[in-house]
Design a protein around this nucleic acid. Sequence first.
RNA 1: GGGCUGAUACUCAAGCGGUCAACGAGGGCAGACUGUAAAUCUGCUGGCUAACGCCUACGAAGGUUCGAACCCUUCUCAGCCCA
Length: 406
Amino acid sequence: MSNPVLPTNQKILTEHLLRHNVAQIYPTTHALGVALASGRKLRVYAGFDPTSPHLHIGHALLLEKLRQFQELGFEVIMVIGSFTAMIGDPTDKTATRSVLTAEQVKANAATYPAQAGKIIAFDGPNPARLEFNDRWLSPLTLAEIITLSSNFTVQQMLERDMFESRIEAGKPIGLHEFLYPLMQGFDSVALDVDVEIGGTDQTFNMLAGRTLMKAGVLGHPAKEKFVITTSLLTNDAGKKMSKSEGGMICLDDSPEEMFGKVMALSDDLILPYQELVLGLSMAQLVDLKSRLTAGENPRQLKVELAQGLVAKFHSPGDAKTAALAFDARFRDHQIPANVPIIAFRPALTIQDCLLESGLASSKTQCRQLVVQGGIKLNQTAVTDLLTLVSPGDLIAKGKLGLLKIM
RNA sequence: GGGCUGAUACUCAAGCGGUCAACGAGGGCAGACUGUAAAUCUGCUGGCUAACGCCUACGAAGGUUCGAACCCUUCUCAGCCCA
């Protein structure tokens, strides 16, 4: 980072910044390119909703973009939507949406810097800044909020297809939900940013911010704001990867978990993940494709992807270890090292162990699992839940649930 | 404020007096097949019981009935329309 970047490199990096994983740039890619080359230290940010303590690889794509700006010497800000999380992004279609309390928001956000720090740098010569948007949203007065809202029409709000579809479905739309884009938009104004980055699903909210900035509200000078939308990472079902979906890969997953989750992805996702998450070049992607058409087992390519991901978010050493552990456990069917332990006591049954460990939530569920052959004691299927266990026994539920008696 | 319609399990969504712990889809779990793949197929998916069965549930509270998710009343919440 301390080495001065050569102009040619700068050019390549800038080109990468403008193209890789970018869905669209507002107003135009060209205009942003000009601003980037102007020598001005642009201020760039992306917002994150603290609705869960985990950041996932969808977030990583945004952070990655921020890092590219950071490497080029621009000012980078990570904004935590501490205030907006309490309103609730109306992207969700259900009317009754649980609104987070200040405490929950705080607890969730506490883990973010450490996770984001794997990608962007919060120290060093050009450190990223962390901001919580309640700092400027909480003090807004009603008069100011009214002024902000006068920049939009109800028709403009209704243009959002998510609102349209809700009207069609006869679902309620809360008045406060119209305020959400306003609040998020005011983030841009308060921070006086030049560029905002977000997924394509955030286009409306981000453009609301652009409108406010161009209008020059509440004493802030009018100025242009660029908006970069990034492609969304999809899961197997082709749905956007988000906190509400299962199977998402979190930045704070252990190397083993992360490796396993990647291996469970459909083969179709290998190339998209390689491109979006690991940033492979076109040439490299073509190479991967030719290996597949040559008949190479996709499993190998997926192993490489999994190792790449673990190496990126943990370390190359962890990637190697995770790959070995994965093979040992699932290919060679060995027992892993870190199995949860249940303390032995007299008259301890298999059912007790399942319930106490949380592998099953009720006795009824235990019975069903046994009927289906899902419970194994020392590799053999269990038929009686009340079988007593002894120290050293190994209980398995399905493929992943393991318990050791000590 | 008035009229009409609706509220069903994790989500969506049937059911409209007994055969309803509640069709179906998604999700989840388990099994088969495999590359721990994915896709596909099968089973399960309120609790208690070895089981017969029992209990708790269909927005809330009452009521009618031998019997109610289904009928009636009130309430709460939402949608549409009128003001």
